[in-house]
Amino acid sequence: MAHSHEALLRSPYVWHPICAREAWHLKQEIDAGAVFVAGGTLLRTQWEAGLVTFPAHLIDLSGIADMTGIGRSDEDGRGWRIGALATLAECRSHPGLAADFPLVKEAARVIAAPAVRNLATIGGNVLSRTGDMATALLALDAELLWLNDAGTHSEPLSAWLDREREGISGAPGLLLAILPSAFLGVSMISKTRRFCAFHKAGRREAFIPPVVNVALNVAFDEGGAVADIRIAAGGGTMIPARLAAAEALTLGRVPDAALLAALHAAVNEEYAPKPDPFVGEAYRRMTAANLVAAALWKAGSDARASGEEGEPCC
């Protein structure tokens, strides 16, 4: 018994790797007893709630320089690389990123509260699966850059979320960075009149997880018809997903009253929320449908108002 007291009082062991590969090796060596920790803002709530047991080993990622920072991903300056350790506060205030990807900024703006955003990382929010960031990034065709025994490789965020939804859970490595699609940035394609919107409804106006969140990323052709569209939605405990049927419905059509009504019905049908003791399923469906339809309505009217030049609407 005395030994376990001592162990209790000394735990956890905290490891401080200085590069991603070292962090990954530590995790492999210690295995189930070890947990990566970055901001720790979500983990501590899970420990406090008893949802997960407090680990014997923490692998602190905060000293790994190449997982931090937000910057251009290539020399011709088209893409962005968001380090997994970039804080939500950084994502919220980075001027270049915000100019190209207002969806990322807007999602970061409405997550938690300032003190949490100063600690919490974008990587942690995405890997939580149910935060706001994954929904926004789905509408940007973002890729995840993983490190594992095989080296580094990237895969679409949607592919990883699909596996999670099917219950094949667990990250396939250490998440190094997030790469939104260079082709979907607002500034890249202003001539096609691209608009985006992120909306969140919670049980309170701020400092609240999403009951429903939706992200819209849409481009109109010169006739005002939808040329390209991504609609993603999440909230509650559901894993965010693209709404493919709703997207398909809108392609090539002008967002008039008939299309918006059809879109409303399609989202209501396709969106697959999970109720909890506080908010029922019908409310969640209606909210998602309303928010998506309102967002496309607003994008359409903004497109008409702005003429040739596209502007972000969020």
């Binding site: 918006l260 009504a261 409303h264 019908a282 209606m286 449908a289 309303n290 339809a293 309505w297």
Partner: peptide, 10 residues
């Protein structure tokens, strides 16, 4: 909020 919510109409 479910009491006050309405389907959007255009």
């Amino acid at each position: 909020p479910a009491l006050l919510q309405e389907p959007i109409r255009f």
